[in-house]
């Protein structure tokens, strides 16, 4: 097996890894969406829980947004690695690549 085909295979496998990581992150992101708390869930005493509740809701949606970003980025990184491997495969050697094109979805 030539050096370039070994590298091409390794890069394809690396791309597969990121697509799997994206699949693993998806249910975690969904779980965060399910961790809702109503305002009445904060205290059994008669204290105002409005601030606590608003802070929690903000944090929860921040985490959901961030992890949704991870799902997207992992998938796109996987596809970018595919594009690199494709280019090596076509060229039969490790060629110089336009990385701006590679890393644009």
């Amino acid at each position: 097996m030539s050096e370039v085909s070994v590298i091409t295979r390794a890069v394809y496998n690396e791309g597969k890894k990121w697509k799997q990581l994206s699949d693993q992150m998806e249910p975690i992101k969904a779980a965060v969406g399910g961790l809702d708390l109503s305002m009445s869930a904060f205290f059994i005493g008669d204290a105002n829980a409005g601030g606590h509740s608003a802070a929690y809701n903000g944090f929860q949606s921040f985490m959901e947004t961030v992890l949704a970003g991870a799902v997207t980025e992992f998938e796109q990184l996987g596809l970018a690695l595919d594009r690199i491997a494709d280019a090596y495969d076509r060229a039969d050697e490790v060629v110089a690549l336009n990385l701006n094109e590679i890393y644009t979805a």
Binding site: V6, L21, I28, A31, V32, L35
Partner: peptide, 26 residues
């Protein structure tokens, strides 16, 4: 549901899936 499963992804991010990836340079 969040901390543990996310932390399990950490190692994989920088660990090559294919050992031959180290031969890739440039």
């Amino acid at each position: 549901q969040v901390k543990t499963p996310v932390s399990e992804l950490s190692f994989s991010t920088t660990e090559p899936r294919d050992e031959d990836l180290v031969r890739w340079s440039g």
